[in-house]
Design a protein around this nucleic acid. Structure first.
Length: 206
DNA sequence: CGCACGATTTGCT
DNA sequence: GCAAATCGTGCGA
């Protein structure tokens, strides 16, 4: 079975396969590889309000509907890039957000991108940090992760993992929680669990 | 055409 | 612990 075939399925089913996987990216500066320790699954139309593809196909989310094994990078908060691996069969939106990992190759280059004072464990801990450490540009959305300049190696055997709640969404019976955050227990590169996004304070007028 | 907001990180109090 | 930084996307008018 090829890596791409293994990734073709519902995001929450495929996500555990990405734990322990090694993603590498090469550009003019060199190569950085990360062993993934924390991921989050996002589904598609209707069932997952937390997903970008929740409302259907748009120019931005188009990649999420494509074949598995491709990159979905998006820009958020005006300053950050987050990376996903598209996992669903063609036509069904689903993706796995890479939330954290451990640098296994190219530490010096990653440190150059992230800042020299950053502790090793923090180099790729957090979605935007991971994207930054790997040097993934926003414009690489849609790139095939199984072709240069990318490489994705799935673990031979599934790693023992744990899950936790991802987001709370309003459902028929109240608040629903999706246990769609997956991580390798005991890894220092797993970000501490935060309940969910605190309520945003309104912008203070002058 | 205009506006509100987000799958976050960082730094200051 | 809290708030700012910053801009593309998507929805409403």
């Amino acid at each position: 079975m090829t890596g791409r075939e293994a990734l073709t399925g519902r995001a929450e089913e495929v996500a555990p396969l990405l734990l322990g996987a090694v993603l590498s990216h090469t550009d003019d500066s060199g190569t950085v590889a990360v062993r993934l320790t924390e991921v989050e699954a996002y589904a598609g139309v209707g069932e997952d309000p937390g997903s970008h593809a929740h409302r259907g196909r748009t120019p931005r989310t188009e990649v999420m509907f494509g074949p598995a094994g491709h990159l979905y990078a998006y820009f958020t908060y005006g300053m950050h890039v987050c990376v996903n691996v598209v996992t669903g069969p063609e036509g069904i939106a689903s993706a796995v957000l890479l939330r954290g990992g451990e640098i296994v190759l190219g530490e010096s280059l990653a440190r150059e991108r992230r800042g020299s004072a950053v502790p090793l464990r923090d180099l790729a801990r957090g979605p935007a940090r991971l994207a930054s450490a790997l040097g993934i540009p926003l414009t690489d959305t849609g790139a095939d992760l199984f072709e240069p300049p990318y490489a994705l190696e799935l673990p031979a055997t599934s790693q023992p993992f744990e899950t936790s709640a991802r987001t709370g969404v309003a459902g028929p019976g109240g608040l629903l929680e999706y246990p769609w955050r997956f991580y390798l227990p005991g890894e220092p590169t797993v970000s501490p669990y935060r309940a969910h996004a605190p309520k945003r304070t309104p912008r203070a007028p002058s």
